[in-house]
Design a binder for these strands. Structure first.
Lengths: 339, 339
DNA sequence: CTGAAAGCGCTTACAG
DNA sequence: CTGAAAGCGCTTACAG
């Protein structure tokens, strides 16, 4: 058996005694091939271990059947859950999913995106883009099939998938408020994300609805990273009147807040309650297990993939701006207000 | 400005008033082009936003300058650290790194690997392969540039990168033994990995060296997942004579063991010590912070990438089997034996 | 230092 | 139901 990677479609044609065209047809599952012919071709493919060259296929004008997912990094479970969902949906539909990041790249992000997309990918899922809206728009105009997960601002024109961040924040706040908390610290997320802004809006409106004044000292900037959770909690605990609860904009920052608070010798939730956002798998194993807002990450990933595949099939896709529900998951890090 | 994705090298040639050949030369940084010509071409490229078609480039016989990393899943920080390192080294050398998994794929893993590799990737890093050794060997024979990270068994012929797992296990055991522990439970990793076997060997030999008999009840099978850590710890704690320390084969299983032990109302490390392996970033934030063995994951990823790039450049690469050092990181989950 | 030709391995119209 | 031709956008020898 020769080296599979040097076998071409023409070789198969020769062995099967048909034209390359016919081999192409059976390989692509097209109709209009006699059963007997199909058999012969299949047999030759099986016997040789032939695998089509994706570059040639793509160049000849069709598609690669590989989808890309561009992520800010590989390090959080937020990303991995999204990727699991996207990968699952892609494979269901006969596509490959490939992940990449441009955090290290020297080139401008947009060039980078164009480069890898030109020919290699049929479509792209962009998670938490740190590319300017205008450039994204340009990419979209230029015909790149894409959907944004957790987009920046109000790109109403671009296909996107998000969770209902505002409502999620409201749920967490109502939970905390119902437990009697009145001073609640808020650690914000990356300020260039709509998700973060929406959660902040939920925080503020929840307070207002109960007639509680917003105290700017209780709002700390953040960036979704653990270390910022530590800093936020630290700032809060140095206040004359520290909060009795902290609502961190994601689970990793909640973890950071827990680290700090525990280092100070406080008990969770007896002395202070802590809530997160995301419900990454790990959060159930924090100590104490984290009360958080569940984003359907897996579903968001698969929904994004299905949207792209629909675009590829030119199927009309009415819901270009998908928003999935969030829900409160009560575990052990929140309890009645201590004072 | 026309749609960048429809501009070809020929368009640039026309605009710059040179032949396509010359454009190709400047794009690829080849010598033997007049400075003035180079300038003209560059200007045309800049103005148009031209980006080369990777498929055409690859098909024409060269390379894509994209490397792949095939991983069992995207969900653990063990993977993300490896990917960070690999991505960094790739970008340093002007390559892209793309991640993918075949866990959902219906097809046989090897077909899958061949498919995506045919044309799309210049080389492949395979992490914790669950592909039969023989098939890997076949892939290698067929000319695929690859390196295995954490390989299965004794594939001496394949390029690989590993940590010194045996020594790592010895370090943890010596630490525990020095703290006075005599009954130490061991939760094993995925049995088809060499890493797991080597750690088990380290466990056993450490005991023997101190003249402590090996008790099979204190060795529990595992698979590197959190849930298996829970089960292992559970089995140990039901013993007539439970261990005073547990050494889990990776950090995620150590986390599981911590979960269980705490649910039983035991204190860590006062009542029982727990040690892990990997030193994933999260482990410093477990409660209590985990004592573990550090694998240089980032470095392993970048070393693997550099090995592939060397192969691509036909640079002789003497050290085809790289083994990186492990070290003990003492934090708060281990302490003196309690009885 | 620069260019004309052939070809990489496929697929898309177009015939029959 | 099947095939001969042209072409996708590049690059590799080969000339000059």
């Amino acid at each position: 058996m020769p080296n599979p990677s040097s076998i071409t479609l023409e070789d198969i044609a020769r062995v099967a005694g048909v034209s390359p065209m016919t081999v192409s047809r059976v390989l692509n599952g097209k109709s209009g091939v006699a059963a007997a012919t199909r058999q012969k071709v299949m047999a030759a493919v099986q016997a040789s271990g032939y695998v089509p060259n994706l570059n040639a296929r793509a160049l000849a004008g069709n598609q690669t059947r590989v989808l890309g997912m561009l992520v800010p990094d590989f390090s959080t479970q937020y990303i991995s859950e999204l990727a699991r969902g996207a990968g699952h949906a892609a494979n269901q539909a006969g596509y490959e999913l490939v992940l990449y990041t441009h955090s290290h790249a020297q080139q401008k992000a947009s060039t980078h995106v164009t480069l890898i997309t030109r020919g290699l990918l049929d479509g792209l899922i962009i998670v938490l883009p740190d590319i300017a809206d205008q450039q994204l728009e340009g990419l979209h105009q230029s015909g790149l099939r894409m959907v944004i997960v957790d987009h920046r601002h109000e790109l109403k024109s671009l296909p996107s998938v998000d969770a209902d961040n505002y409502r999620g924040a409201r749920l967490m706040m109502d939970h905390l408020l119902d437990l009697g908390h009145r001073r609640i610290g808020f650690i914000a997320g990356r300020p260039d994300t709509r998700a973060s802004l929406e959660r902040l809006r939920g925080y503020k409106e929840s307070l207002q609805l109960r007639g509680i004044e917003i105290d700017d000292q209780l709002i700390h900037p953040g960036n979704f990273l653990q270390a910022e959770g530590v800093k936020g909690a630290q700032a809060f605990m140095q206040l004359d009147q520290p909060p009795t609860a902290i609502f961190a904009c994601n689970d990793m920052m909640a973890l950071g807040a827990m680290d700090l608070v525990r280092d100070m010798g406080l008990r969770i939730p007896e002395d202070i309650s802590i809530g997160g956002f995301d419900d990454i798998p790990m959060s159930a194993h924090f100590y104490p297990a984290l009360t958080t807002i569940r984003q359907p990450l897996f579903d968001m990933g698969s929904a994004a993939t299905r949207m792209i595949i629909n675009m590829l099939s030119d199927i009309e896709n009415p819901s270009h701006q998908l928003e999935l529900k969030t829900e409160l998951v009560v575990r052990s890090s929140t309890g009645p207000a201590s004072n």
